[in-house]
Amino acid sequence: MRRLLSTLAVTSCLLTGFQAVSWAQGLPGLTLFSGVKGENQLPYRLDFGGQADGWDRYILRIPAQKMKLAVAQFAITYPDYYKGNFDPKQVEVMVKGKAVPLSEVKWDKEGRVIQIYPQEPVPAGSKVEVVLSNVKNPSFGGIYYFNCQILSPGDVPLLRYLGTWVMSIN
């Protein structure tokens, strides 16, 4: 089966002149020199290939073992050189495959942060996906560090670092 798919991809490229887009282009792959320790790197997927100046959907994953505390707020920060656009109305939080109702999503362009407030705290030990749909990628490709911070209910009102998505835009 694998050989057949490889043959079809090569043949279609030769006959049509178009490359076959692979799902692997939207996955993080292996990061050797990022400056972020391996245990702090979070997995993600770019549904539409992460092409510069293109529209995309970011699926930012948080493994269950990283969710040691319940979460009342997610804060996603990104670098000042990221010049993409987000649609706060197109943000979802999925817990164990089901959408969680959100009370508010704020995008602070100057502060470079997306703040997501679930109606009910997300339980500790849950596998979480933050889905950012209708994203306009930056005009220039590069490596972008998206940091995830959380606020736990009843906790001191300081955000705690959870990890970093090391994202590559082509």
Rank of each mutant, 00 (worst) to 15 (best):
residue 11 T to E: 12
residue 13 C to S: 12
residue 13 C to L: 13
residue 13 C to H: 10
residue 14 L to A: 15
residue 16 T to D: 12
residue 19 Q to V: 06
residue 19 Q to D: 15
residue 20 A to D: 01
residue 22 S to C: 05
residue 23 W to S: 14
residue 24 A to T: 15
residue 28 P to I: 01
residue 30 L to K: 14
residue 30 L to D: 14
residue 30 L to C: 11
residue 31 T to Q: 12
residue 34 S to L: 05
residue 35 G to F: 13
residue 36 V to Q: 03
residue 36 V to M: 10
residue 37 K to L: 12
residue 39 E to I: 03
residue 40 N to T: 05
residue 40 N to V: 01
residue 43 P to W: 03
residue 45 R to I: 02
residue 46 L to F: 00
residue 47 D to Q: 12
residue 48 F to I: 03
residue 49 G to K: 07
residue 53 D to R: 12
residue 58 Y to Q: 08
residue 59 I to S: 13
residue 60 L to C: 10
residue 62 I to D: 02
residue 64 A to Q: 11
residue 65 Q to C: 04
residue 65 Q to W: 13
residue 67 M to V: 15
residue 67 M to Y: 00
residue 68 K to G: 03
residue 70 A to F: 04
residue 74 F to S: 03
residue 75 A to V: 12
residue 76 I to R: 00
residue 77 T to M: 02
residue 78 Y to M: 05
residue 81 Y to V: 11
residue 82 Y to F: 14
residue 83 K to E: 13
residue 86 F to R: 08
residue 90 Q to W: 11
residue 92 E to F: 09
residue 93 V to A: 06
residue 93 V to Y: 02
residue 95 V to R: 03
residue 96 K to L: 00
residue 96 K to C: 00
residue 96 K to A: 01
residue 97 G to R: 08
residue 99 A to D: 01
residue 99 A to M: 09
residue 100 V to Q: 12
residue 103 S to Y: 00
residue 105 V to F: 04
residue 106 K to P: 00
residue 106 K to C: 03
residue 107 W to Q: 05
residue 108 D to G: 01
residue 108 D to C: 01
residue 109 K to C: 06
residue 111 G to F: 05
residue 113 V to L: 01
residue 115 Q to D: 06
residue 115 Q to H: 10
residue 116 I to Q: 00
residue 118 P to V: 06
residue 119 Q to M: 13
residue 120 E to G: 03
residue 123 P to W: 04
residue 126 S to F: 01
residue 128 V to M: 10
residue 131 V to K: 08
residue 133 S to K: 14
residue 133 S to L: 03
residue 133 S to W: 00
residue 134 N to E: 11
